[in-house]
């Protein structure tokens, strides 16, 4: 198929940036979206132009690096997939596709489609861990009894890959789905109880400090999240913070 691409180009963090139109031809429906971008970049390099910078690493939906706002949706029109898992068969011959970086004050653009998501790292550093002594005397994991339901729900929360689609999608640029998932994966397990109060307080404080917006429960994040992280995690975080604040 032949496509017109409208892509955000920005030289560096200080540049104002603008949308630029490109044409690509003979794109196969079996290609992934990133492979289509590779085709474009080869074309640009052969013509002596600067290729479009975009983040990617695993190209199989697990690292969370790829981040494109495609035709007005994070990770494009398909559900439950990252941009690297999005197939070109979702588009039609002759389509115009608009491609933009994640937009959020807390995710500044570094170049073209690449944004800085260190804010997520700093939120994790504020409490997204448990302090376990790992030097030699770790106990058997099965020695701690955990209900199947708690283990499954915690695991579901832990599948968040930190891609930032929730922030990019949210009309308020809120990071609550991400932080809710990270708080929940520990709050549900006995190992997470010890530091539970400090964890939620510190992570929420860091989230606010980074300049993410305020959740208004539109639910857009849950729909666009490639891992199907549930809004229940936000409710759980709210409960955890209330508990921690008494």
């Amino acid at each position: 198929m032949d496509l017109t691409l409208k892509i955000w180009r920005q030289v560096d963090a200080k540049d104002k940036g603008k949308m630029v139109d490109y044409k690509v031809t003979e794109i196969s429906g079996s290609m992934s979206f990133l492979e289509m971008m590779d085709v474009l970049n080869e074309q640009l390099v052969n013509a002596g132009d600067e290729p479009v910078a975009f983040d990617h690493d695993c190209r199989e939906g697990i690292c969370g690096m790829c981040s494109m706002y495609i035709n007005g949706e994070a990770h494009g029109p398909d559900r439950g997939v990252t941009t690297c898992q999005l197939h070109m068969r979702m588009f039609k011959d002759g389509d115009t596709i608009t491609i933009e970086p994640w937009r959020a004050a807390a995710f500044p653009v570094i170049k073209d489609l690449v944004v800085n998501r260190s804010a997520f790292d700093r939120i994790q550093h504020a409490g997204g861990y448990i302090s376990v002594n790992t030097s030699g005397n770790t106990q058997d994991a099965n020695a701690t009894l955990i209900s199947k339901k708690a283990a499954d729900t915690a695991m579901d929360a832990a599948t968040c890959i930190g891609c930032g689609a929730c922030v990019a999608t949210c009309k308020n640029s809120s990071a609550m789905l991400f932080v809710g998932a990270k708080v929940s994966q520990y709050a549900l397990l006995p190992q997470g109880q010890v530091e539970a109060a400090d964890r939620v307080r510190n992570m929420v404080a860091q989230m606010d400090l980074e300049g993410f917006g305020n959740c208004t429960n539109t639910g857009a994040c849950e729909v666009e999240c490639p891992k199907g992280i549930s809004l229940d995690n936000i409710a759980r975080m709210n409960r955890e913070l209330m508990k921690a604040s008494i």
Binding site: K6, W8, M19, Y69, N71, G72, E73, P77, T98, E100, R103, A104, A105, A106, T169, K171, N172, S173, S174, G211, F212, G213, N214, T218, G219, A220, V223, E224
Partner: peptide, 15 residues
Amino acid sequence: ARKVAYAKNNGAANS
């Protein structure tokens, strides 16, 4: 919290 708006945003797709 979002200083630069999207050129194209499809809010109706998810909310």
